[in-house]
């Protein structure tokens, strides 16, 4: 089964950049969400999504809360989650890992880093 990404970010610009990067890497199947709440709704509506790329700082529901919500849901708790955020301090990274994100990319990212982290996550599934 191919990969279908859910790209979650409140910034339209960032969503487009992530989507463009995914397309450049050959991944053309994706859906977008503008915050954690929207992401959960999209996940509930579309069971074919099998990879989540999320920002941390978003209104209504943050990426961290989204991760906790996904991990707390038995039907989705194995979904790979890649956090892509500006937050680069150790406490934040540890907090994200404790919430069980699969990997962590700090913005501004390069396509090589994005590819490397996606590949690492897929290799460890």
């Amino acid at each position: 089964m191919g990969l279908k990404f859910l790209v979650v970010d409140d910034s339209v610009t960032m969503r487009r950049i992530v989507v463009n990067s995914l397309k450049n890497l050959g991944y053309n199947d994706y859906v977008e969400a503008n915050d954690g709440n929207d992401a959960l709704a999209k996940l509930n509506a579309d069971s074919s999504v099998n990879f989540v790329i999320t920002d941390w700082n978003m209104p209504n529901m943050t990426g961290l809360e989204l991760t906790q919500a996904i991990r707390g849901d038995a039907s989705k708790n194995n979904l790979p989650i890649l956090m892509v955020t500006t937050r680069g301090v150790k406490e934040d990274i540890v907090q994200a890992l404790q919430a069980r994100v699969n990997n962590y990319v700090v913005k501004p990212f390069t396509p090589q880093i994005l590819k490397e982290k996606i590949d690492q996550i897929l290799a460890n599934l």
Partner: peptide
């Protein structure tokens, strides 16, 4: 409900991601 990172910075150096990778 706004959420932001007060320490956000545009730093394209590879060291930043390297630090993150080391912590991960």
């Amino acid at each position: 409900h706004v959420s932001f990172d007060p320490n956000a910075r545009y730093d394209k150096s590879e060291e930043r991601q390297q630090t993150v990778d080391n912590i991960v």
